[in-house]
Every structure is written in C-alpha cells, then in structure tokens.
C-alpha cells in the first residue's frame, strides 16, 4: 500500500505543499503569517499578518503601550500574557523587561505571600521608556500604584487594549495550526445538503471528507 505524503494536501481543489511542517509552525508563531510565506501561501500569509498584527498593535496603542507585560507576583498575576505571547516576537520584549525588573527587585522573606513581599529599587530605569515593562513593586490591589495610574490614564482603552492583544495571540494559535496541518476541516453537520444528492450516498460524502 503506497504511503501518502502528509505535507502535500489538497483543499478547495488547491494543492498545498506544507514543506517542513514543524518549521512552518515555528515561523507562524514567530511572526503571524511568516509560516505561510515560507509555504508560498502568500495571500493567506498576508491576510493573517495584516489582521493579527493590526489587532495586536491597535490594542497596544489604545492601552498606552502598557497592556503587554510579564509578571507573576502576589497582587499582579498577569495571566493575560500567556495569551499575548501567542503573537510571537512582538510580545517577546516583555520577557526581557520582566527579567531586568526582577533583577532590580528584592524579596522580603518575612512578608512572603503579601503584596509588600517584593520591592523594586527606586533608581531602576527600564529600557525603551518602559515599553512592556512590568509595574514597579510593590503592586497593591487596594491602593494607588503604577498599574492604577495606567488605568486612570487610559480608562476603557487599557481594558480593551488588553483584550485586543490577547485575542491577537489566541487567533495566531489557529494560524499556527493552519501552517502545520492545513485548513481545519468543516464538520459534515455544518454543510448544507445538496438537493440533487441521493440520501443513500452519504458514505461517498464521508469518504470525500476524510480524504
């Protein structure tokens, strides 16, 4: 029985060469659309790049460039960054900034678990004007700190910017799958029935879907 090549597929009557699927998936994560350019699927690559990067940077702008940062301390567990990281390189500077801030932050073991456990050196200056830098420690949920200042300055834009950047990262996960395995199949239940088709011929349809 001849083996079929999983990197060559046909969708909508179009032959697709997925090339190295792992590399395509990595490139798709690195920059939205890049994996598709590598596979010579230029139209889709361009569409992904424009849609996802526009969503990401619009969100970044309306949030005042502070919506993307990496932090995991009491009072400031920024789980949103896990979604934002899906967009690849545009979210990576946050890791560098977090690493720098952590090296300038001291931990007080006596206050373990409290919001005052961490304290950033007052002389610390983040790179790039604070772009994607986490807020200075301590971050207190009930009193004024750097995060509350960002909220006050940007209002709903801060919240919406966070959502925009998160959605951009999550959309790119679909794109990574598309680069790795090709378009997702449409469930048979989601297709309109062809009125001319013989109802007893459903096995033929299922076989076509599977192929």
């Amino acid at each position: 029985m001849p083996k079929t090549d999983p990197s060559h597929i046909e969708v909508d009557g179009i032959q697709i060469d997925l090339r190295s699927r792992a590399l395509a998936a990595f490139l798709a994560w690195l920059l939205p659309g890049l994996g598709h350019f590598y596979q010579r699927r230029y139209a889709k690559g361009g569409l992904y790049m424009v849609c996802i990067l526009t969503t990401y940077f619009v969100g970044f702008a309306i949030g005042g460039a502070h919506v993307v940062y990496a932090s995991w301390i009491p009072g400031d567990k920024r789980w949103h960054y896990a979604c934002q990281l899906g967009v690849g390189v545009p979210a990576l500077p946050a890791l560098i900034q977090a690493s720098r801030l952590n090296s300038a932050t001291t931990q007080n073991a006596n206050l373990q678990g409290s919001e005052n456990e961490y304290r950033t050196d007052p002389d610390f200056e983040p790179w790039w004007g604070g772009l994607m830098s986490p807020p200075r420690r301590p971050v207190r949920e009930q009193s004024a700190d750097e995060v509350s200042a960002w909220y006050a300055r940007h209002g709903a834009g801060y919240e919406m910017g966070t959502w925009y950047t998160m959605i951009a990262g999550l959309l790119n996960i679909l794109v990574i799958y598309d680069a790795c395995s090709g378009p997702l199949s449409i469930p048979i239940s989601g297709r309109k029935k062809d009125p001319d088709q013989d109802p007893s011929d459903e096995t033929t349809v299922a076989t076509k879907e599977a192929s």
């Binding site: 139209a43 992904y48 849609c51 996802i52 709903a156 959605i167 378009p183």
Partner: peptide, 28 residues
C-alpha cells in the same frame, strides 16, 4: 462609541477564522 471597539475585532476574527477553514480566497 464604545461599540466601535467591536468592529475591528469582528473583521479580524471573521477573516482569520474563515482563512483557517479554506484555501480559496473567495470561500474565505
């Protein structure tokens, strides 16, 4: 005016979702 935030998200999500289901741009 807050509803305007909805429009670019709708366009981006719809286009990306459509593109992950098809290869032909008309079908996308």
């Amino acid at each position: 005016t807050y509803l305007l935030y909805y429009v670019p998200l709708l366009v981006a999500i719809s286009l990306v979702y459509g593109a992950t289901r098809h290869e032909d741009m008309n079908l996308v």
